[in-house]
């Protein structure tokens, strides 16, 4: 097994040994159980029935937003905890280069986000197809309506993960890096309204984070191609990545 894979294994072991991840998963399953209970109760009282696909879509829509916030928290924490506990010294006196350490952490965060989302989707869909009416459609409808849109909006999630991650490398403060990512995330929507008409708006990262519009056959801005969107997104991601690597490499550990 390659050295980098072992580093990712280590990060995975650390993140799953902390309380956050199991507790977060329990929280998600409680949300799911409550929603199922509520629906079954409402049906028994004569309320309208729900389709399996509709229910899965609805629940996954909510939990993936939660997971978006959760991913910002763990992307900050995976850096700041090492500084807080002093274990950063233990990490950086090994043969691994600092760039490698940083990349193994980023890869692990992405794996965790994918794992949590897919586990949630699987469990929700399984419960929904057993308990509710599946006549409206099966896996195909779920793929088109829920799974594909999730992957098409993943760039948005990845961008804010990297913002939190870079902020954590720069500030080494958990509160600060979570705040920066969450505030930027909520400001983005508002900001877009004010600057959407400006000619340079298409050079900002914000219109290029949601790729669903291309799937729907309409670019986010008139005359912009998917190639352009992909290019701008990659450029911003690379810039954040290079800043975090550069700062992390240069830092003297006290």
């Amino acid at each position: 097994m390659s050295y980098f894979t072992s580093l990712v294994q280590n990060e995975w072991m650390k993140i799953t040994s902390k309380r956050q991840l199991p507790y977060y998963l329990i929280f998600l399953f409680v949300v799911l159980a409550a929603a199922i209970g509520l629906q079954l109760w409402s049906q028994s009282e004569g309320g309208s029935e729900v389709g399996s696909v509709g229910f899965t879509s609805f629940i996954f829509g909510i939990t993936s937003v939660f997971t978006g916030i959760f991913s910002i928290v763990i992307a900050s924490q995976i850096i700041t905890d090492e500084f807080k506990d002093g274990t950063i010294k233990q990490l950086l006196i090994r043969p691994a280069s600092r760039t490698m350490i940083l990349m193994s952490k980023l890869v692990t965060i992405i794996l965790v986000v994918l794992f949590v989302n897919l586990a949630m989707l699987l469990v929700t869909a399984l419960a929904a197809f057993i308990l509710f009416d599946s006549s409206a459609g099966g896996i195909n409808v779920l793929w088109e309506g829920t799974i594909l849109p999730f992957f098409l909006t993943l760039p948005n999630e990845l961008f804010y993960i990297l913002v939190a991650f870079t902020a954590a490398v720069l500030t080494r403060s958990l509160g600060l890096s979570i705040s920066i990512a969450v505030i930027l995330n909520s400001l983005a929507g508002m900001l877009s309204i004010f600057i959407a008409e400006k000619p340079w708006y298409k050079y900002t990262v914000f219109p290029h984070l949601n790729w669903k519009s291309y799937y729907m056959g309409q670019p986010p801005i008139e005359g912009v191609t998917f190639g352009f969107t992909f290019g701008i997104f990659t450029l911003y991601m690379l810039a954040l990545l290079l800043i975090s690597i550069w700062v992390f490499k240069k830092r003297d550990i006290q």
Partner: peptide, 24 residues
């Protein structure tokens, strides 16, 4: 370096495993 900084939320065995993997 200074105190023996270890991952407190993991067992001794896991800590050793962690640093074994890092040794290359």
């Amino acid at each position: 370096v200074e105190n023996p900084e270890l991952y407190k939320f993991m067992t001794g065995r896991q800590n050793l495993q962690h640093f074994t993997r890092m040794s290359g």
